[in-house]
């Protein structure tokens, strides 16, 4: 049984005549890294939003650990799946960088004596130490991207979805991110990432899914072309 499963899922946005996604049949396990690629508007972000229950399918069902995603609250999904938004501004809601990183694990009952240690680890790894007390929306785009990833990774989810994680990152920081994702995947966390960065995808992804006009046209996991 796949960790996340799409069963003939179609989705259309309200007041839009056409389907943004159509007849998606996919499974995502907690093994390795899957890349979702495709041109702008092909439905990649919509697919990831369906994976975390922010959007509900128009037809078909999305299942998480064998149960329909609709049976879960967003909080329950958030404890299993970490989601890094395409636009980092949308996911910040704390007054400082340190608070943003610690929000998830503090609310999930992390022991107080380890809180500071964890904050410091992520501040150091993502080189955000100098911005510890800075308001997150005051950071540069690249720094925001790093903070968005750090704050989601800090919750240690079972599955991680990253929407365009390399946008705004320089080559050195892309390499750092890639190393960390490989390490996390090796520790048994499933990862799906949406990216236009072909070099990043080639380095990391063991499976590549390509979308075109809302349909899966290639899934290297199945080793065959669709449609």
């Amino acid at each position: 049984m796949a960790f996340l499963e799409f069963n003939q899922v179609s989705f259309s946005y309200p007041q839009e005549g056409r389907f943004a996604l159509r007849d998606i049949q996919l499974g995502f396990s907690r093994d390795g890294i899957t890349a979702i690629t495709g041109a702008n508007g092909s439905g990649k972000t919509t697919l990831t939003k369906l994976m975390i229950g922010v959007l509900r399918s128009t037809r078909g069902t999305v299942c998480l650990e064998g149960r329909s995603l609709e049976e879960y609250s967003l909080g329950e999904i958030g404890r299993r799946i970490g989601y890094v938004f395409q636009n980092p501004d949308l996911q910040f809601f704390c007054s400082t960088v340190a608070e943003e990183i610690s929000f998830g694990f503090v609310n999930q009952g992390c022991r107080p004596e380890t809180v500071e240690e964890k904050i410091q680890y992520y501040l150091d790894y993502f080189e955000l130490g100098n911005y510890r007390h800075v308001f997150p929306l005051h950071l540069s785009h690249g720094e925001k991207r790093r903070l968005a990833i750090a704050s989601v990774l800090a919750t240690e989810p079972s599955f991680l979805i990253l929407d365009e994680p390399t946008t705004g990152l320089d080559a050195y920081r892309k390499r750092l991110l890639a190393d960390l994702l490989i390490k996390i995947a090796g520790a048994g966390t499933g990862i799906s990432l949406v990216s236009h960065d072909q070099a990043f995808v080639n380095r990391l992804a063991e499976r590549v899914i390509t979308l075109e006009k809302g349909r899966v046209v290639w899934d290297s996991g199945e080793g065959r072309k669709h449609g």
Binding site: S73, L74, G75, G78, R79, L90, F93, N107, S151
Partner: peptide
């Protein structure tokens, strides 16, 4: 939405 996706079940 972002708060809930960090694992906080607001209803509870």
């Amino acid at each position: 939405t972002a708060v809930q996706l960090r694992g906080v079940d607001l209803k509870k």
